Simulated assay, not measured.
Amino acid sequence: MSGIFAFLAVGYLGWRLIRRAPRNRATRVRHFHGGQTSIARDHARGEAGEALTRAELRRVLTSLCGNDFYLHDGAVLLNHAPGTAYPTAEIDHLAVTPFGLFVIETKNWSGYIEPGADASELVRVGPGGKRESRKSPLAQNRSKVALLNAKLPKVWTIEGLGVFSAPDCVLHPDLPPTLIHINELSHCLRLRRHEFRLSGQKPINVSTAWKAIMLNASIDANELEEHYKRVRVIPQVVARNAV
């Protein structure tokens, strides 16, 4: 009788080991895919934020300019460093208007956004008071604005803006006025238009400006994909700045 019990005990332990092995492997697979899913989720959140900003930009500019503006329906690549490992820089939204060119970086960040240690950094305060240091969209835009200023006529106004599109995002009052919530976009651009009209400057020819920009930029889908492949080799940078 004791032999039967011993046989049954060994059989039961073997069955438990067999059951456990695939479950552990499945867990590892889920953990691996979980990381990939997290990156994909962040990317999708970023794209959703950009879509919100693009729609609001189009609504506001139509109100201010009628049909006399250009807003590309997608990202624009600037050829800012030809011949280097990272020759291109992505602009989320490039709005060309009679009263200025606007280089806009969208962030779909929730929480409270505070100034960081310096002008290049921001602090996001999330649920439970968790604090994260992130690169400011103004810092991300700086080299892009500088390139356009160097390549385009000096009389054209070119400005970088950072737009936060999440409805549950709150901005600290000490942040620069060029960092705005999406709800402030209408007032911001209306103010820029008003200041331009008071300046007496000649309006920018939208078609001419776009053609001039394209001498140093691209909207080609293949070139955009090559750009994304290059930046994806630094996942921590993508994760830090994607949304």
Rank of each mutant, 00 (worst) to 15 (best):
N149R: 15
V10Y: 07
R232C: 03
L13Q: 12
Q36D: 08
G83I: 07
A166C: 07
N205D: 14
I158R: 11
E121P: 00
I219L: 13
I204M: 05
D68K: 05
L198I: 03
A26Q: 01
A212V: 01
V231L: 09
N183M: 07
N141I: 04
T106C: 15
N79H: 15
S38P: 00
R134C: 11
S199Y: 08
M214W: 03
A40P: 01
H227D: 03
L101C: 02
V170W: 13
T178G: 04
V145G: 05
T27V: 05
F102S: 04
L224M: 11
Q201V: 00
F99N: 08
V238Q: 12
T157W: 04
I213C: 12
V155T: 12
A166S: 12
V60N: 10
I4D: 15
L17V: 03
A239N: 13
P235K: 05
G74F: 06
N183C: 08
A139C: 02
A48W: 01
N216G: 06
V206I: 03
H194T: 00
L57F: 06
I113V: 14
D168L: 05
A166V: 01
Q236V: 11
G128E: 12
A139T: 00
H227N: 05
K107Y: 06
R58N: 15
F7M: 14
S38E: 14
I182G: 12
P203R: 00
P177S: 13
F99V: 05
F102P: 02
W15C: 08
R193F: 06
S63N: 11
Y12W: 15
V243D: 15
A217N: 02
G129M: 04
R58A: 14
E56I: 03
L148C: 04
P98L: 02
N241K: 04
V237F: 02
R59V: 03
L17M: 09
V60C: 09
S186H: 15
P127T: 11
H172Q: 08
A146P: 07
V163H: 06
Q36H: 13
L148E: 07
V103K: 09
S218T: 07
R240P: 01
S207V: 10
E50I: 02
L175F: 06
D118V: 00
L148V: 00
G100S: 12
W15D: 10
A51Y: 03
P176G: 06
F69T: 02
L138A: 10
A44I: 03
K135Y: 10
Y86Q: 11
S186F: 07
A21D: 04
R19V: 09
N141H: 08
A212W: 01
